[in-house]
Design a protein around this nucleic acid. Structure first.
Lengths: 120, 120
DNA sequence: TAATGAACACGCTGTTCATAC
DNA sequence: GTATGAACAGCGTGTTCATTA
């Protein structure tokens, strides 16, 4: 049993959630997460987002499609990579989330314990 | 800003607390911690305890004394290393604890956020 | 600048090994 | 088994670099 939850697992959880809400692409989700965690002073590194996404693909949870961004072709031909759930991806994601939830609770318990034990 | 609190910092916090209560030695504190964290399935590796102790010495928080364990010399000559606060060790420890507390709170916040954001 | 990806180096950590009693 | 310490290997992570539009 590892000490704390890994950053990778934490990020994967958020990415799965974002794909559940609407299919998205890496850079977009990165920027959203940066914004969400600003109050905590935590800046998720972009390499971690892409690595997490690639792992979720390798694990058969997500698959990729490519798309040109923007409606006006004369303005922007930038290609983006969209992520979607595979056939049984939703199941796999649900199982993964369940595991992460267990670990999250365990970690919260250990941190609360540290506060209770060492700070009166 | 790192993602989560480091195991090293977490253990140091507990070691400082144990030295505050009574001067102790490595193996003893290790066994106590193993017992304390059993419910969480977390087994602190002994190398981490010794590393943390050595760092606290290098940082000028603690100093070491050696002592033979046991009252009856015919039974046990095992040598143990006891740890005590240095002159300004208590101050340094208090400052360190304050910093760790801040980080603990931040981490608890991030874990709670993950539960709130990803589990309805 | 938006967007994706890989490379590279570093540091923490877990296991193992060494030593002594 | 108690007690301390170091070595060693591996993995996660952060920074940097590369590329395209």
């Amino acid at each position: 049993m590892a000490f704390m939850i890994a950053q990778r697992a934490y990020i994967k959880l958020y990415l799965i959630n974002k794909v559940e809400q609407r299919r998205g692409y890496g850079y977009q989700m990165l920027e959203e997460l940066k914004e969400e965690f600003k109050p905590f002073g935590y800046v998720p590194p972009q390499s971690e987002i892409y690595r997490a996404l690639h792992e979720l693909v390798q694990e058969g949870v997500l698959y990729r499609t490519k798309q040109l961004k923007g409606n006006d072709p004369s303005v922007d031909f930038q290609e983006i990579v969209l992520y979607h759930f595979t056939d049984n991806g939703a199941e796999k994601a649900a199982l993964y989330k369940k595991q992460v939830k267990t670990d999250l609770d365990r970690c919260i318990g250990m941190l609360h314990k540290a506060v209770a034990d060492n700070f009166v």
